[in-house]
């Protein structure tokens, strides 16, 4: 609560059910200026759903979201114009646009933010090419993130490259808060470096980042604060090293608290399916 006044993005008591599944329950989240918040949790914990609720891709059943103290609601495009940008767990790149054009999409909300703006852009695009400053900004981002050959098509890209392009598109929006859904999954070293640069750029400008990932090590190296989700709810919130050592972390990932760990291990060897499957799932996901 102390955060509320200073937080850039502040979500309070968000809830979302899919049919009978409570994907997000009573989640509150604050992101301060220049802060990078890690969001971790096992499969199905509700991380993507939380990002969806923040960005408007899904509408929350209840709850309140403010950005710079103003309530934001409605369609994702409205929230994007208010200052939220996101990437997707499954990259969403337009297949018949080049890499360069895909990144350019991030620039267009300032010109196509209304019906009138869309019509003006349509008429203008008959006569003239892309706005100079948009083109320059896209070139700058490509250079900064080391994106080479921007005239390639989607079909030429690896999963890691696709993620980097998505991050670049989100960066092009110049957001107040950047939501990244598992940006490192499938990335190679180069892609990872690019994404790290993007995160640094955004937080360096005093803007916020929410970073969803399974890989606790990567998250720990990038963030000051981790939010651990389990079964739709926040299980732990604090600095990464504290989180790693917390009983909640064990509880969530290994289905048991510290004190019972040995006992459980013994039980596991007798009845291996129980928690072993959890670990296998975890591994399989990386």
């Amino acid at each position: 609560m102390a955060h509320e006044s200073t937080a850039l993005l502040s979500a309070a008591d968000l809830n979302k059910s899919y049919g009978g599944v409570r994907a997000v329950r009573e989640v509150s989240l604050d992101v301060g200026p220049g802060e990078v918040v890690g969001l971790i949790g096992p499969n199905g914990a509700g991380k993507t759903t939380l990002v969806d609720l923040l960005s408007g891709t899904q509408s929350a059943d209840s709850g309140r979201i403010t950005l710079r103290g103003r309530v934001i609601s409605g369609a994702p495009s409205r929230r994007a114009r208010a200052g939220l940008a996101r990437t997707f767990q499954y990259p969403q790149l337009a297949p018949d646009l080049t890499v360069w054009e895909n990144i350019l999409l991030g620039r267009l909300h300032r010109r196509m933010g209304s019906a009138w703006g869309i019509m003006r852009t349509a008429v203008r695009s008959l006569l003239r090419p892309v706005h100079r400053d948009d083109a320059d900004e896209v070139d700058r981002i490509c250079a900064a993130l080391h994106i080479s050959e921007p005239q390639r098509l989607w079909s030429d890209l690896t999963l890691g490259e696709q993620r980097l392009i998505e991050v670049a598109r989100a960066l092009a929006q110049e957001p107040d808060v950047l939501l990244l859904d598992e940006p490192f999954a499938g990335s190679d070293a180069e892609g990872e470096a690019g994404i790290r640069r993007a995160v640094a750029t955004v937080s360096g400008r005093g803007h916020g980042v929410v970073l969803v990932d399974h890989n606790v090590d990567i998250v720990a190296s990038l963030v000051e604060r981790v939010v651990l989700m389990d079964q739709g709810a926040v299980a732990f919130e604090g600095p990464p090293d504290e989180c790693l050592r917390s009983p909640e972390m064990r509880q969530v990932y290994f289905g048991t608290a510290t004190a019972q760990a040995q006992q459980q291990d013994a039980a596991d060897s007798a009845r291996p399916e129980a928690s072993a499957t959890d670990r296998v799932q975890e591994e399989g996901d990386r």
Binding site: G56, S77, R78, R81, A85
Partner: peptide
């Protein structure tokens, strides 16, 4: 969804 998320309705 990507176009929406980029701020164009």
């Amino acid at each position: 969804v990507a176009v929406e998320a980029s701020g164009v309705a």
